[in-house]
Design a protein around this nucleic acid. Structure first.
Length: 592
RNA sequence: GCGCGGAUGGUCUAGUGGUAGGACCUGAGCCUUCCAAGCUCAUGGCCCGGGUUCAAAUCCCGGUCCGCGCACCA
């Protein structure tokens, strides 16, 4: 796979340019709203692209939801403002930009302030204050040195804002990641998991970011598809089953290697990487081990694939360890997925903001018995006695019972009420020491988050599948897509314009479609042209009906394989069955 | 958001102040017993707006979009 791949990389225009052209021409993807001049950062997947993307999503679902025993949900793309107040996107997703009046460069205003003043967390300052600081310190443009005083600082939030319902009473935002839709519904989702940790919830869907500068076709867009898994674990008791992935070979690029000049990618196994502490968190290691063979199965070239650890500065403060899956495109590494241990950050934030309970009850092996001091004050006494302060008195009594049981040993208990010491007869407090059985405790689960970018993966799969070779002296372009994800699985052709051949071919098309295969019928031009057409969209097999097919008793057709152009004769009766087996990966063309 | 470069049929491209040509693709037909062959015919285009001009696809300005660099990428 890799030899031809590298050959196509070495000369001529970059594969990306040829691929983008092919994608446009053959219906993989193209810029949206072209008739209206186009709009930056939005792409439409054409017939081939939509099928490929759908197949990739199905493969992801099979592996990360079905095979892992996780549950999939489908949440809205619009959520109300409080969700993003809790998640931190409303504030943290906001960049402050200031433009230089001389050279026109835009800079992060908070960075300018932090670099040249004693302020350390300028991002949290309100904008007018940042403007004042810039004026006060006479800060200058980092590029050209011109004064920035008096320049407006603009807030730029990467979330798309909208209004829910008529008027502007309820602001909402298009989600900048699919994850919040899972976190927000946690209290209900944990019920579906029967309150048992660990459990995982997946979601495949669109997310939106109003990027300042979308780039490089579908690699960085404003609307994109994510496939995310939020795996909820009990941080004290749950451990991944590393044995299942310990022998998976991985290429790791740890932070320590990135920080040296001649840092190298380490070829190792998941098991060894955990043992040697290269991967800090075993859950992250587990999912790296699941992801690697999966990426290979959908067509990512493993010679152009690695896991890169985030540098400490790159990592969110709550994340213990974070790795990205990366693929190489024309010499550049792009992020395909992130694997982060997010601790209880997300659930705690939503618990705090919503007031709902984002915990799971962890039952002790043995119930614990504890003594607890309680009060049950006689309000018919406290009310008349203390009037409006009665509730304060109750609170004081409760607190006192918790911290100083001995205070209730006499006939009266003393409490402090606004600096004044007051006495209350113990018999009126309802003081009691009770034995209580505690069966367990409420735990906020920690979250392990493998988060996949689907569009970038589709791009990588196409890019890594792109091939140029020669057949009988003629140049050929083809996509070496794995049969499992190829948008069209088989082309069916009559050898020539001939009513009998066409009739037989039609019948075969019906049979194959009935068997659930994606079939393309083509009877135009000569046979070679039709093969090349299918090669270019990556159709793995072509079936040709010739005169032998209709003359013989035992009807056969030729089946031609895309990558080698080799042909074999197969009986029509077993055609659907054989091709289905190949698509399922149970049979190889070579074995026919 | 800034700087540089670009935008001509579906795709790739030639070109000039007087509204455009090629190649491939696509469709119809002929030919053709397995790899982009040949022949005939057909469809289809100057990114948008303004300005200069008798006349603008061409020159100028603005915008949109694309590529690259800077910045950004929670």
């Amino acid at each position: 796979m890799s030899e031809t791949a590298n050959a196509t990389e070495t000369e001529g225009e970059p594969t990306s340019e040829k691929l983008v052209e092919l994608a446009k021409r053959r219906g993989y993807f193209f810029q949206s709203s072209g008739s209206y001049g186009g709009v930056g950062g939005f792409y439409t997947f054409g017939p081939q692209g939509a099928a490929l993307k759908g197949n990739v999503e199905d493969a992801w679902r099979d592996r990360f939801a079905v095979a892992e025993g996780n549950m999939e949900i489908d949440a809205p793309t619009i959520m109300p403002e409080p969700v993003f107040e809790a998640s931190g996107h409303l504030e943290g997703f906001d960049d402050m930009l200031v433009e230089c009046p001389d050279c026109g460069e835009s800079h992060r205003a908070d960075h300018v302030v932090e670099d040249d003043t004693e302020y350390e967390d300028a991002e949290s300052l309100p904008i007018p204050e940042v403007e004042e600081v810039i004026a006060e310190y006479e800060l200058v443009c980092p590029s050209c040195g011109a004064g920035l005083a008096g320049q407006a600082v603009e807030a730029f939030n990467l979330m798309f804002a909208t209004n829910i319902g008529p008027g502007d009473s309820q602001p909402g935002y298009l989600r900048p990641e699919t994850a919040q839709g899972i976190f927000v519904e946690f209290p209900r989702l944990k019920e579906y998991a029967r309150n048992q940790l660990p459990f995982g919830v997946t979601q495949i869907g669109r997310a939106y970011r109003n990027e300042i500068s979308p780039r490089r076709s579908i690699i960085r867009t404003r609307e994109f598809t994510q496939a995310e898994l939020e795996y909820f674990v009990d941080p004290e008791t749950d451990e991944p089953d590393l044995e299942r992935v310990e022998n998976v070979e991985v290429a790791l690029y740890p932070a320590s290697e990135q920080q040296t000049d001649d840092g190298e990618v380490i070829e190792t196994t998941v098991g060894a990487a955990v043992e040697e502490g290269v991967i800090g968190d075993p859950w992250v290691a587990y999912f790296l081990g699941v992801a690697k063979p999966w990426y290979e199965s959908v067509g990512v070239d493993m010679d152009r694939f690695r896991f890169r650890q985030h540098l400490s500065g790159e990592r969110a403060h709550y994340a213990a360890d974070c790795w990205d899956a990366e693929s190489e495109i024309d010499g550049n590494w792009i992020e395909l997925a992130g694997f982060a241990y997010r601790s209880d950050y997300d659930l705690s934030k939503h618990a705090e903001h919503s007031g709902d309970r984002f915990t799971v009850f962890r039952q002790y092996d043995e119930p614990k018995t504890v003594e607890r001091a309680t009060v049950d004050p006689d309000m018919s006494y406290l009310g008349p006695e203390f009037g409006g302060d009665a509730q304060t008195v109750v609170s004081e009594l409760e607190a006192l019972a918790g911290r100083d049981r001995a205070a209730f040993e006499g006939d009266a208990v003393e409490i402090d009420l606004e600096g004044e010491t007051r006495e209350i007869p113990v018999e009126k407090t309802g003081f009691a020491v009770e034995e209580e059985t505690i069966a367990g405790e409420h735990v906020t689960p920690h979250v392990v988050e493998p988060s996949f970018g689907v569009d970038r993966l589709v791009y990588t799969v196409l890019h890594h599948a792109y091939r140029e070779d020669e057949v009988d002296g003629e140049e050929r372009t083809y996509l070496e897509l794995p049969p499992e994800v190829a948008p069209t699985f088989v082309g069916v052709f009559p050898l020539q314009n001939d009513a009998d051949l066409e009739a037989q071919a039609d019948e075969i098309v019906d049979d194959l479609r009935e068997a659930g295969l994606s079939v393309s019928y083509d009877d135009s031009g000569n046979i070679g042209r039709r093969y090349r057409r299918q090669d270019e969209v990556g159709t793995p097999f072509c079936v040709t009906v010739d005169y032998e097919t209709i003359e013989e008793d035992q009807t056969t057709v030729t089946v031609r394989e895309r990558d080698t152009t080799a042909q074999k004769r197969l009986s029509v009766d077993e055609l659907a069955e054989t091709l289905t087996a190949i698509r399922e990966g149970d049979l190889a063309f070579d074995e026919l």
